[in-house]
Computed example of a mutant assay.
Amino acid sequence: MHTTHPSLYFWALGDLHYRAQPAWQALHAPRMQEMFEDIQSVWQEEGRPDFCVSPGDLVQTGTPTNYALAIQEIARQMQGIPFYPGIGNHEYHPDSQEDTFHTAAEFSAAWHKPPRYAWTAGEQHEIICIMLDQPYPYGSGERKESKEVIFPAETLHFLDATLQEHESRRALIFAHCPLQDTVLDRDPARNLDDDSQDTFFFVNNSAEVRAILAKHANVTLYISGHTHSGWNSPQLLFTEDLGKHTITHLNLMSPWYTGRHAGARRDPETNELIYVPDKPDTLITFALSIYADKALIRARDHRAHQWLTNWEIPLR
Rank of each mutant, 00 (worst) to 15 (best):
G86A: 09
S108K: 00
T120Q: 11
T182E: 00
D95A: 15
A118R: 14
L163Y: 04
A109I: 13
H176A: 03
S140E: 15
I74V: 14
H176L: 06
T182D: 02
A189H: 14
P137M: 09
G88A: 02
L192W: 06
I150A: 00
A104I: 02
F174Y: 12
L159E: 05
H157Q: 10
P188W: 09
R170D: 15
C177V: 14
Y84F: 15
L156R: 15
E98W: 00
I173R: 09
W119P: 05
P85T: 08
D99R: 11
K113N: 06
A110H: 01
G80D: 00
P94K: 10
I87D: 02
D160L: 02
P114K: 13
A109V: 14
T162R: 04
G80N: 04
I173P: 10
F151D: 08
R170F: 09
F107W: 11
N191Y: 14
D181R: 13
Q97D: 12
W111I: 09
Q134V: 01
T162E: 05
N89I: 02
M131P: 05
S146C: 11
G122P: 02
W119K: 11
P82D: 06
D187H: 12
D181Q: 15
Y117G: 00
F83G: 06
R169S: 09
D181Y: 09
F174L: 05
M131H: 06
R143H: 01
G86Q: 07
A171L: 11
Y92Q: 08
E126N: 11
P178I: 06
G86L: 07
D195R: 09
M131C: 01
T100Y: 03
F101N: 01
H166N: 15
G80A: 03
P115T: 12
E165G: 01
S140K: 14
D99L: 08
D160C: 01
R76K: 14
T162D: 04
A75L: 06
E167K: 15
K113Y: 15
R190G: 05
